[in-house]
């Protein structure tokens, strides 16, 4: 890992393979993956559709089991979802029949906690994420950006030490996406949770991350891990700077070399 400072490991993955058995030959989703996520680190997985980044997330979340190799979260191998994990998906998957406040409190009910102990925290989170006054509304009465903010509040209600975000802003318009990127950076800087973030967007990955893990397809694998050495907090204007551009260009170049991206007009 070169000169990267070694922090206690949140996730340690070595020689991981994931094969999905199929009738017409097994499908190799991930091959020889090594990945390290330090405690409090923000790492993005960046790659095209089908590169296995979602599969990798599902393995780390304990939703699937690995075929071979090793995967440890907090120093333990998994036999199910680990404790202290918050998840955010591309779609907010809020429950239509619950108010926004009750949606945010859902993890409390699943964890067997007392709802009353968390109502204040839930309301505070909703205020922080610009949803004050929407506590008693239902999901369908909110815009896509507001719904995704509510989903983030839900992921945070039990104060997890570890966040997994699977293309959380992929379905949002560009302006809302920028706004939520800023909010996520602020959340990360104030709480220092470990974050594993999946995205299609080079700019989003470089903007948010300590390190960007670039993946390619067939089989799904990691081609390079790039440390993003840009000062924090970063504002949106950093995307127009030369150093930001160098990181983006380098990643785009990687994609072209691995046949992921064809930029030459034909």
């Amino acid at each position: 890992m070169g000169g990267a400072p070694q922090r206690p490991a949140k996730i340690r993955i070595q020689g991981l393979n994931k094969v999905f058995p199929a009738e017409n030959g097994d499908f190799r989703a991930l091959s020889g993956v090594d990945l390290h996520l330090g405690d409090g680190e923000f790492v993005s997985l960046l790659g095209p559709s089908g590169c296995g980044k979602s599969t990798l997330l599902r393995l780390i979340a304990g939703l699937e089991s690995i075929t071979s190799g090793s995967l440890e979260v907090d120093g333990r191998s998994l036999d199910g979802p680990p404790a202290g994990l918050g998840m955010v998906f591309q779609r907010d998957v809020l429950l239509d029949w619950r108010s926004i406040l009750d949606n945010v409190l859902l993890p409390v009910e699943f964890a067997g906690g007392r709802r009353d102990d968390y109502v204040t925290r839930a309301r505070d989170l909703l205020v922080q994420y610009g949803l004050a006054g929407f506590e008693d509304r239902h999901p369908w009465q909110l815009s896509g950006g507001m719904r995704q903010r509510a989903a983030i509040c839900r992921a945070l209600i039990l104060d997890p030490s570890f966040l997994i975000m699977d293309e959380p802003f992929g379905a949002l318009d560009a302006l809302t996406r920028d706004e939520l990127n800023i909010e996520l950076q602020r959340l990360w800087q104030t709480t220092r949770k470990s974050v594993l973030f999946v995205t299609h967007s080079i700019a989003e990955a470089v903007f948010l991350s300590d390190r960007v893990v670039v993946m390619a397809t067939r089989p799904g694998r990691i081609v390079e891990t790039i440390a993003i050495d840009l000062p924090r907090p970063r504002d949106l204007a950093i995307r127009e700077t030369a150093s930001f551009g160098r990181y983006s260009a380098h990643i785009r170049d990687l994609f072209e070399r691995h046949g992921v991206l064809r930029t030459k007009p034909s």
């Binding site: 599902r58 979340a61 304990g62 939703l63 199910g80 979802p81 404790a83 994990l85 998840m87 998906f89 998957v93 859902l106 993890p107 009910e109 699943f110 964890a111 067997g112």
Partner: peptide, 8 residues
């Protein structure tokens, strides 16, 4: 999936 990660 979300419900499973909530371990309920």
């Amino acid at each position: 999936d979300l419900a499973r990660t909530l371990r309920g």
